[in-house]
Simulated assay, not measured.
Amino acid sequence: MAAMLEHANYTVSDGDATAAWMCDLFGWHIRWKGPSIDGGQSIHVGTDTQYLALYTPGKGTAEKSNSYLTNGGLNHIAVVVDDIDAMERAVTDKGFTAGNHGDYEPGRRFYFHDHDNIEYEVVQYD
Rank of each mutant, 00 (worst) to 15 (best):
Y125D: 09
V91C: 06
G58H: 07
L54S: 06
A86S: 15
G99F: 07
Y10K: 00
A8R: 09
A2S: 12
S67K: 12
N66V: 08
I43K: 07
H7A: 13
R108A: 12
N9M: 14
T92G: 02
G39H: 03
I30N: 06
R89A: 14
I77P: 06
G39T: 10
Y111Q: 04
F26T: 03
V122R: 09
M22S: 03
N100W: 05
V81G: 02
E63Y: 06
Q124S: 09
D103M: 06
D83K: 10
G40V: 05
A86W: 08
T56F: 00
Y51I: 04
Q50W: 03
M1D: 13
T97K: 07
G60T: 10
L54C: 00
Q124T: 10
D83T: 10
P35C: 08
Q50C: 07
I43F: 06
Y55S: 09
L25T: 00
E105R: 13
T47F: 10
A2E: 11
V45R: 07
G46Q: 01
F96A: 00
T70F: 00
S42Y: 06
W32G: 09
D82W: 06
A19I: 00
T11S: 01
I77H: 06
A17T: 08
G107S: 02
E121H: 04
P57G: 06
P35K: 12
D38P: 13
A78F: 10
D83E: 11
N75A: 12
W28E: 01
V81T: 03
A53T: 09
Y68D: 13
Y125V: 08
Y55T: 11
F26L: 09
L52C: 11
F112Y: 06
T49Q: 15
